[in-house]
Amino acid sequence: MTERYSTIAILLHWLIALLIVGMVGMGLYMTGLPDERMSEKFELYQLHKSFGVTVLFLSLVRLIWRLTHKPPSLPGHMPDWERFAAKATHWAFYGLMIGIPLSGWAMVSASPWNLPTVLFGAIDWPHLPYFSTVADKKAVEGMLKEVHELLAFGMLFLLVLHVAAALKHHFINRDNVLCHMLPVVKPREESGKKQ
């Protein structure tokens, strides 16, 4: 039985998690900036897009890794509904980790401003062909902006749920679910609970 996630899976998990938390914070900050600070706003948008493409790439790598490497087993004492919720949450994460950057990319591609995306100030990133040629760019951009924001708030909700569930397993159930993903903590003995 697999006791822990692989080092690659752990590294990708924490790196993507840090990027997502940082991007949500950056997104909330930059959208609240007044137009008088347009230069700063532009730089933050470029950085946000750079990290978004990074999250997209890392999430695709993580998904491929997950499909080709068996994760640790869930504790035997978990009820069926909790197992289903855990699996559904993880697949929802993959959907959002890929869907949010794609929606942002589509939004930028549909923008009537037609601003370039330069990843980390060095790599020109293309617009998506379909969205850059739509007739009513302003309306499509507005719709995609709403989708992007709704998905981001969905990600925040899942993050809170995920952290709460991990802490519940660690401190209330006293099982190894959280330890499976921590980089330095060894799994503990689960006395009286079958794995």
Rank of each mutant, 00 (worst) to 15 (best):
F57C: 08
V134K: 01
H162E: 06
K87M: 05
R188F: 04
L159C: 09
W91M: 09
I100Y: 02
D35Q: 13
K186V: 05
N173T: 11
W105P: 01
R188G: 09
P72Q: 07
K49D: 09
W105N: 06
F131V: 06
E190P: 03
H127D: 13
L58S: 01
L33P: 08
E141F: 10
V163S: 00
L33K: 12
A17H: 03
A92V: 07
V163E: 08
A106I: 01
Y29D: 11
M30I: 14
S132N: 12
M181F: 02
S111T: 08
S103I: 08
L115G: 11
L11H: 02
G95N: 04
F42W: 10
G154V: 07
L178F: 07
T89C: 04
V147A: 09
L156F: 06
T54L: 15
K49M: 14
W91P: 00
P101D: 08
W14M: 08
K186P: 02
E40P: 07
K168H: 11
A165Q: 00
M181W: 02
V185C: 15
Y94Q: 00
A152L: 11
V184H: 11
I123A: 09
A165C: 06
V61F: 09
L74C: 01
S191R: 14
E82K: 11
P112W: 10
S111D: 12
H48K: 09
H180A: 14
W125N: 05
G32C: 10
D136C: 04
A139I: 05
L44V: 08
L150K: 10
H148R: 10
W65Q: 09
G95R: 06
Y29P: 06
T7G: 03
I98Q: 03
G52V: 08
S6G: 14
K137C: 05
G76R: 00
H180Q: 15
S111K: 09
Q46R: 12
T31E: 14
V21I: 15
A110G: 04
A92W: 01
L63S: 01
M78W: 10
V185P: 05
T2Y: 13
L15Y: 01
L161S: 07
M143H: 09
P71S: 06
H162I: 07
V177D: 00
V21T: 02
W113G: 11
M78P: 03
V21D: 05
V21S: 04
E36Q: 14
D175R: 01
